[in-house]
Design a protein around this nucleic acid. Sequence first.
DNA 1: GAAATCGTTCAAATTACATCA
DNA 2: CTTGATGTAATTTGAACGATT
Length: 264
Amino acid sequence: MGFDDLSNTSLLLGLGLTLPSNPPHLISQKPKKPLDFLCFPPPESEPSLTLGLSTVDTYPSETPDLSRQPSPHSAISSFSGSRVKRERDVSGEEIEEEKASSRVSDEDEDGSNARKKLRLTKEQSALLEESFKLHSTLNPKQKQALASELNLRPRQVEVWFQNRRARTKLKQTEVDCEFLKRCCETLTDENRRLQKELQELKALKLAQPLFMQMPAATLTMCPSCERIGGGAATVNGDGNAKGPFSIATKPRFYKAFTKPSAAC
DNA sequence: GAAATCGTTCAAATTACATCA
DNA sequence: CTTGATGTAATTTGAACGATT
C-alpha cells in the first residue's frame, strides 16, 4: 500500500461517514410507464432533484391512448384565454358542466368579468388530496370522474392538480436545499480538518533534517507510526511510487474533490 | 419517410382573490 | 375599518409529444 493510497483511504473514510452517498430524494426517478402512477408513493416522498433543469420526460406521462388523444373536452381542459371567454359554444358538454358547477358559473352569467376565486370545501379538498395521493396526475377519464364527484369543472380539477404538484415540488426543493446546505457544511468542516492535518504533516517533515538530504522520491513514511525511512521505491506504470510507504506524487485530496458525491 | 400542422398536456411563472392577524 | 401577509385558484406562456396530413 502506497502513501497516497493510505491517504485516500483515510480521506474517504472521513467523508464517508458523514452522509449517505446517494440520498434517494436527490435522484430523479419518475415513472415512464403511464400506469405506474397507480403504485406511486405519496408525492411528498417522491424523489426529485429540483434545483437543476427539469425536463418534461421526467414527469409521469399519462396513458398515451387516453391523455394524448384528441378529446371532445379539448376546448375545456387546455383553454387558457381571457376570463371573458370562459363560456364557449365549442361543446355542448362544456355548457352543461358550467351550469352544474353553479358556484362558479353564477357569477359568470351576470356578465361580470371579475375573476372569481373558488374556495374548495373541506370535503372537496379532502377528496382531491386523497386522489392526489393515489396518483399525482390524472388522465381525462379520471379527471372527468373526479370533477363529477366534486361537482366541479374538469378544468378546475386539472388546475388543482397542477397547483398541487407545484406545491409539492416547491416543498421538496426546500428540503433539498436544506440537505445541500448541511452537506456543504460537512464538507467545509472536513476540508478544514484535512488542511490542518496537511499542515501537521508538513511540519513533521521539516522536523526531520536527516531525511531532508535525501531525494524526495526515495523518502518513505509510515502514515500510522510517522517514521520515515529511505527505501527502494519503485515506480509503477501510473507514475506512482511503490514501496512500503512513499511520498504521494499527487495531491492527497485528489479523490475527495473529484468525487464530491461521496460526501453526500 | 420527412416535414408541417394541430391538439393536448404539462411545468413554470405570474396574477388576483379570499382570508386572517 | 384598514392593511399587509399568506394561501391558493386561476391564467399565461412556452415546450414537448402524438396524431394527422
